[in-house]
């Protein structure tokens, strides 16, 4: 899967990430093609979220070595907003609350930025409400301030709502399953499956195998100490579930994905 296909949406080669001068991702390589779902699993502190944040242009995380290409374009040359408009999306592990800015206004601004024109307000409202209904988000949330006083589950659903509306080519979902009860997890998983087509790719970052019962990955990668130590099919997630990360621990040399 690491062959340089034209259809590679995300192509990472020997990527290292530093945060506050500390290296947290060490020479990681990964290629995600259109139509693929990849699960990236690892313990807290293994570097999963650091990788996600660095790819999206988080101000505290730097891609210090290697290359990261989004559809053939070097992402490090792009600002966070340009990465988004280029088709990259990150669903946050801890979405920001922004008091004073309503969900509806925020999403409208985001769509205008993506589509490059003033969205037709009537059409937009319809689109927004349809997506909210799909994800079983109360329509009242459109008038509420972004993530302000939202429960954990509501925040995660709002992230998926944005995924629906923005239709990115490459979506990174950073622990979107954490903090969800089983009903919310099913709704979110159904949303992810509905979003997924042969044209887009998904990197599902998670601790647990649980969500993989509902969103079936093509590949599962195990990340330890800043690199991928094992790649396989869905069975890898089950191995993990059974034996824990200890099973994969001794592998000190990076296994290329």
């Amino acid at each position: 899967m690491s062959n340089k296909s034209n259809k590679a949406l995300l192509h990472l080669t020997d990527v290292s990430v530093t945060v506050e001068n500390k290296q947290v991702v060490r020479g990681l390589s990964l290629t995600i093609k259109a139509g693929e779902i990849h699960a990236l699993m690892g313990k807290n502190g293994s570097g999963k979220s650091s990788l996600s944040n660095a790819l999206m242009g988080h101000p505290y995380y730097t891609i210090s070595a290697g290359s990261a290409e989004l559809m053939g374009q070097n992402v490090t040359e792009l600002q966070a907003d340009e990465r988004s408009r280029a088709g990259l999306f990150l669903a946050f592990q801890y979405p920001q609350a922004i008091p004073g800015v309503t969900v509806a206004n925020f999403m409208r601004s985001a769509l205008i930025a993506h589509r490059g024109k003033e969205a037709d307000m009537r059409g937009y409202r319809k689109e927004l409400f349809a997506a909210m209904d799909e994800l079983e988000i109360d329509r009242d949330f459109a008038g509420r301030y972004i993530n302000d006083g939202f429960s954990g589950g509501e925040k995660k659903r709002l992230e998926i709502l944005q995924l629906f509306l923005l239709q990115p080519t490459m979506a990174i979902l950073d622990e979107t399953d954490s903090g969800l009860d089983i009903d919310a997890l099913k709704i979110v998983a159904a949303g992810i499956n509905k979003f997924h087509t042969a044209k887009n790719g998904i990197l599902l970052v998670t601790h647990y195998q649980r969500i993989l019962d509902y969103v079936i990955p093509d590949y599962v990668h195990v990340m330890i100490d800043g690199n991928i130590v094992k790649t396989g099919g869905p069975e890898v997630a089950l191995e993990l579930e059974e034996g824990g990360y200890e099973v994969f621990q001794p592998a000190k040399t990076a296994v290329g994905a």
């Binding site: 242009g57 990465r83 408009r85 946050f92 979405p95 985001a110």
Partner: peptide, 8 residues
């Protein structure tokens, strides 16, 4: 960063 992440 959150807003820019959505293309704004």
């Amino acid at each position: 960063f959150y807003l820019m992440n959505r293309g704004i």
